[in-house]
Simulated assay, not measured.
Amino acid sequence: MAKKQNNPNGQAVKHEFIFHKKNYIFMFLGIAFIALGFILMAGGGSSDPNVFNADIFNFRRIRLAPTLVLIGLGIEIYAILLNPHKKNK
């Protein structure tokens, strides 16, 4: 996705995006993991402050949701550092 323009000296200048399609696919995948993790963390509240709800300490909120958020952050880092121009040997 390059765009060519002329600068004031009359030379052609090529503009490119920093990220490419592959980077954006991984970014959206990472955002989906993070969003799913936060959705799984939600809920479990009580309308009565005198009643304790033990559901806040279940596996989904303590282990699964934070793990999904960390995996999503790892995918985001990979998406940022991914170089689509690099040739595989």
Rank of each mutant, 00 (worst) to 15 (best):
G45V: 08
E76Q: 15
F26S: 14
F28W: 14
H85D: 12
Q5E: 12
I31E: 06
R60C: 05
K89L: 09
K87N: 14
F26G: 11
I77T: 07
K87P: 06
N23Q: 13
N9Q: 10
P8K: 15
N7F: 00
F17A: 11
L70Y: 09
I18D: 05
I56C: 05
L81T: 13
M41Q: 12
N7L: 00
S47Y: 10
F17W: 11
P84C: 05
I80T: 10
K22L: 08
K22D: 15
A42T: 06
M27K: 08
L82K: 06
P84L: 02
R60Y: 08
V51R: 08
A2G: 01
R61K: 13
A79I: 10
A35P: 00
R63C: 11
G37F: 02
A35Q: 01
P49E: 05
G44Y: 09
K22F: 14
Y24A: 01
F33W: 04
V13I: 14
I62F: 10
P66K: 02
I56V: 14
K87A: 15
R61A: 09
L70A: 11
I56G: 13
R63Y: 13
N50F: 14
Y78Q: 07
N83G: 03
L68W: 04
A65H: 11
I25W: 06
I39T: 09
N23P: 04
N23M: 11
M1E: 07
K86D: 03
A79M: 05
L36G: 11
A32C: 06
